[in-house]
């Protein structure tokens, strides 16, 4: 079965920023799309949704070209953006009335069940909802038409940790269906620690890494040791070296190798996704 999303040599040039990315996502998995602010996450997602025009490269969703088959693809995509772009003067029910008619597979019963699960009153105006409820509303719109691919662009920014966990629970449930795929972009990497299958890390318009989260956690490590050890190392082993008064710390991509070289003289800790992002952004490689 082909990948649910394929991005191939996608390029977009701006005056002071350019994007050049390739990655793909198979059905049944959640891909966390991480990177610092301004790295190109939103740009990539907008390019997939054809809200921005690409300069070159290919984007395939469900195996179809994202521009030639734009409408067909969008029927099967659920989207959740970082802010509420819906009409806040309208009530939930009114907004749903408008949105639902564009989708051939809209399932009203499913919509109502989600309203119950989220405890959302359809008679409320969208502007009367809290930020968390607005995001849940977006999510309900994205989920109520049996979308196969769910694209979320920083859906959790501005939300409290409890709502964020709720969202992750729901995404977990959705993935019980192995035909669906989720692309979740965020700079709050702790959200992904519990749920991402794949991680694609983007920085300054380029993909730094695109692999399983397991691979990252099993091979990467945060190394700490005395500064003098910096002389002994293999070239390119220590990434994002930070020295302080009492020693240094750095990321390694191959912690077995680090252990080989330094033996007991260093401490190697399990990295969080945030560590993996943090040390690679500064870029001082030793």
């Amino acid at each position: 079965m082909s990948a649910i999303l394929e991005v191939d040599n996608l390029r977009k040039e701006y005056r002071d920023f350019n994007l050049n990315v390739s990655f793909s996502l198979e059905r049944g998995y959640l891909m966390g799309f991480i990177g610092p602010n301004g790295a190109g996450k939103s740009t990539t997602i907008k390019l997939i949704m054809n809200l921005l025009k690409k300069d070159s490269g290919a984007i395939k969703v469900f195996g179809l070209d994202n521009v030639k088959n734009e409408i067909e693809i969008k029927q099967r995509i659920g989207f959740v953006y970082d802010q509420n772009y819906y009409y806040d003067e309208l009530t939930v029910e009114e907004m749903k009335g408008i949105i639902s008619r564009f989708y051939a597979d809209w399932d009203d019963e499913l919509y109502r069940s989600y309203l119950k699960i989220f405890d959302l009153d359809p008679r409320k105006k969208i502007k009367e909802l809290s930020k968390g409820m607005q995001m849940k509303f977006s999510l309900i719109m994205a989920l109520s038409h049996h979308a196969e691919l769910i694209i979320m662009d920083e859906p959790t920014s501005g939300l409290d940790p409890i709502v964020r966990r709720e969202l992750l629970q729901i995404l977990s449930e959705i993935l019980q269906n192995e035909n669906k795929g989720i692309l979740l972009s965020t700079h709050i990497t702790s959200d992904l620690d519990k749920i991402a299958d794949y991680i694609t890390f983007i920085n300054q318009g380029r993909i730094v890494e695109s692999t399983t989260r397991d691979f990252l956690l099993e091979n990467y490590g945060v190394v700490r040791g005395k500064k003098e050890l910096l002389m002994q190392t293999d070239k390119g082993l220590l990434i994002g070296v930070k020295e302080n008064e009492f020693g240094f710390e750095a990321l390694v991509k191959d912690k077995a190798r680090a252990r080989e070289i330094f033996g007991d003289k260093i401490i190697i800790d399990k990295p969080t996704l945030e560590d993996i992002m943090y040390y690679q952004i500064d870029g001082k490689v030793v």
Partner: peptide, 8 residues
């Protein structure tokens, strides 16, 4: 942004 993300 929403309108242009819909299948229309």
């Amino acid at each position: 942004i929403v309108i242009n993300s819909l299948p229309v």
